[in-house]
């Protein structure tokens, strides 16, 4: 499913609007950065509660098109700036990780 359709269906807040037409087939959910570094695959959307700059930097290194921050987390200014410079979409959801993952799974499984 296209990222822009996921945003609409899951009612996500958009902090950085890029990669809207990227076709999302899978996601990775983790708050441990080395876990994401080692195990996330390029093209996956990353669901996390972390909001600091290293998140955007890892997303860019891993070719992750979008980060979804859970529970209305707000990205730090330098995270957002880095994401803008490196074409990573930054989104947030009002939901905690479990229901968000469940809904996203239903959409793209």
């Amino acid at each position: 499913m296209l990222l822009k359709d996921i945003i609409e269906k899951l009612n996500l807040k958009v902090y950085n609007e890029v990669n809207m037409d990227s076709d999302v087939k899978s996601a990775y959910s983790s708050d441990l950065l080395s876990d994401v570094m080692g195990n996330a695959k390029s093209g996956q959307v990353w669901i996390t509660m972390q909001t600091h700059k290293n998140v955007a930097s890892i997303a860019a290194l891993k070719d992750v098109p979008a980060v979804i921050i859970v529970r209305n987390g707000v990205p730090d200014d330098d995270m957002l700036e880095f994401a803008k410079d490196n074409d990573v979409a930054v989104l947030s959801s009002s939901e905690p990780t479990f229901p968000l993952c469940g809904k996203l799974y239903e959409l793209i499984k």
Binding site: D31, L32, S34, D35, M37, G38, T48, Q50, V55
Partner: peptide
Amino acid sequence: EMGFGAGMGLPNMKKN
């Protein structure tokens, strides 16, 4: 608290 410290960094280096 930043999400580092899983003890996976060196294993990731080895694997990759």
